[in-house]
Nucleic acid binder design. Structure first.
Lengths: 223, 223
DNA sequence: ATCGACATACCGTCTGGTCGGTTTGCACGA
DNA sequence: TCGTGCAAACCGACCAGACGGTATGTCGAT
């Protein structure tokens, strides 16, 4: 059931509204922002690429900034929903922390590859957002990290993850991989998305696992 | 000796020319580009912050783009020089691959923290460079990665690093940490730079080491 | 007749870059 | 020591154009 629910959260299903213009403009903006950057893309270019007029665009969006924020909003909502979904499913099944974390990490990588253009924009253009919007993005990302951190801390308490590195560093270590994807990953490359997600997740997990030596007396829960 | 040579490559020693104006303008540009972004910073702002006039600036720099490229140039030269230095020193001493790699990684992290502003600009503004300049940056970074990859491949051949993940993925896994630093690291944070460099390097190395099981018959070289 | 969905023409602002001119630093001959 | 010449350093007013955004109008559906 939860698996089906997760599948229902596929990228394409997150609404870009039903209006055609809204849709088209946002798609064109995402594409242009990702390839040319926000500042170097004019509203004229966007509406031309979308096949609409400036009047139409400004009927649906308050400003160019609004257009940019819509891209962030969509991405943040989607990723947060998937994370919540996976954590809830893991809790329901009583999965071991490491299994939940592995599922989460692989999902984040996979989703980030599907949202490669959004990822490019996210990294490059965050500082172009209006200050209040920037704060909103930070707030949302913070909320996301908190959920992720809770997972890590549970693992640390259970003794399966190392406790000699601050959780903040562990988080940065993982999300660096995710945020770096748009800068090197090419769909034309040799690996499949799933393989890459597995590999990156494995590298991360291997790095953060507690040393097998000096196991605590607390009962280890086998898978 | 090589240690002294490395120390001689400190950040501050890389020339920003001796002319005061050149110096001042570049510093102001770096600062503003890092905080506001390239496109949203006007030449007027830069020269005002540097305390010079536009005429003076255009006497030393051909264009705004030139200003941006100078920042990249400086950073790339410095990092490449340090990498070469460390690899050469390791070869001279006959160090084990893992020790050389550890030294390199820690140095990259440390240097990247010293060049935090440059790192911010690097990630955000690469697409604003003139196409030829963009290609030049890519070329330089490629050269850097090739040296790094040689190190990894030597380790893989010797059996100390895992061979079930492509080197390209291993490289991305490490440099993601480096490139992500400007987005989360704060000098006001709890860890010292050296600690953080050690931690990130350790996480990386732990991830890429070959499994201790199934050791190859080739003689393992103990440290 | 009212309203949402657009189209079109237009505006004020700001930008990167230029250019003619002036000042400064300095070698050199008398 | 002083003038002289000359190039490099520097000034700042100016420009052409592009940009985000708006005001006003049209049109079909209800």
């Amino acid at each position: 059931m939860s698996r089906a629910a997760l599948a229902a959260l596929a990228v394409k299903d997150v609404p870009m509204r039903t209006t055609n213009v809204h849709d088209q403009v946002l798609r064109a903006a995402l594409d242009l922002f990702a390839t040319q950057g926000y500042a170097t893309t004019s509203v004229q270019e966007i509406v031309a690429a979308a096949g609409v007029t400036k009047g139409a665009m400004y009927h649906y969006f308050a400003s160019k900034d609004d257009l940019l924020f819509a891209i962030y909003e969509r991405m943040l909502s989607l990723q947060k929903a998937r994370l919540d979904q996976l954590v809830a499913a893991g809790a329901e099944r009583g999965d071991a922390v490491e299994d939940v974390l592995r599922a989460v990490c692989e999902d984040v990588v996979t989703t980030s590859i599907e949202l490669l253009a959004e990822g490019t924009v996210y990294t490059r253009s965050q500082h172009m957002l209006a200050p209040e919007r920037q704060a909103e993005v930070k707030r949302r990302r913070r909320a996301y990290h908190d959920d992720f951190q809770a997972l890590l801390e549970r693992g640390i308490e259970e003794g399966v993850f190392r406790d000699d590195v601050p959780p903040a560093v562990l988080i940065a270590h993982f999300f660096s991989d995710v945020h770096y994807l748009p800068q090197w990953y090419s769909p034309a490359g040799p690996e499949t998305t799933a393989e890459l997600a597995e590999q990156l997740t494995e590298l991360f997990l291997r790095g953060i696992r507690a040393e097998p030596s000096a196991t605590k007396p607390s009962g280890g829960k086998a898978k």
